[in-house]
Amino acid sequence: MEQIATVILDSTNAILVLMLVSLGLAIIFGLMNVINMAHGEFLMLGCYAMMELINLGVPFFMALALAPLVVAAIGLIAEELVIKRTYHRLIDTILATWGLALVLRQAMVLIYGPGSYAVSPPDVGSVVLFGEPYPVYRLIVMGISLATIIGTFAFFFGSRWGLAARAVIANRDMAACLGINTRRLDRMTFAFGSGLAGLAGAAMAPMISIDPNAGLGWVVPAFLSILVGGLGTVSGPLVGAAGVGGLDSVTAAFASPVWAQLVVFTAAILVIRVFPNGLVSRRRREA
């Protein structure tokens, strides 16, 4: 019983973080039609930013708030230098961001070396849940993820910016005709999406080993999540991430972590094949 409770808590944690990563990816994809293969690297940058800020003496939770901003700023630069030159060429966005991923990874190797670093978690202790001690920091990560996801939703469906963003998702040219500055929106979108990845990285930093390849394992699950869930809706990626993340942690807990990725990827490929528009789909015009 206690074991099951721990598995459920750990799964929830994994799902919420994956949701955060997938949401950033899906917003960039949906709004800008850019497939960002470097999304995992922005997560990795979040880890390094966290580490640097803590080494500079910034208190942990202050660093956690600042690290996503640092990553968003890097995203803004990347958008200006690279991404904006590949608009309207969907396949080329894959290639350009793939190159960007290579550059970011290798830049970290050159700056910090190929070795791994660790960030010590804040001293918040643990709490007894369902008869088992559970680290409070993990609960905090869940809370931050959940709050950010809800915040993003509120922003999308409750603000003028969100309205403009949804207009661009629905029909970019028409939105531009109606006076929405799509260029500025693109810039903010990419910064926001990479900031979400950076936040996920910063929050995960004390739980994983920080190395230049830390982001590699994220980009494929995040893409599978948004394809399983479906594009064109904001809730699709969340459903997909729940499926992918949940299946992954349950398989890892009850079978073995080695087979978890196999099972999840295979299942995701099957789902994408059977439902090419995703589980939560809205009719979308053929491009």
Binding site: I35, L90, I91, I94, V220, F223, L224, L227, V258, Q261, L262, F265, T266, A268, I269, I272, R273, P276
Partner: peptide, 21 residues
């Protein structure tokens, strides 16, 4: 409803990760 374009790319990438495993 065949897979095409970028979707095909991402799914083939996932398949490569599976086969490597």
């Amino acid at each position: 409803r065949p897979l095409k374009g970028a979707f095909l790319g991402i799914v083939t990438l996932a398949l490569a990760v599976v086969i490597e495993r």
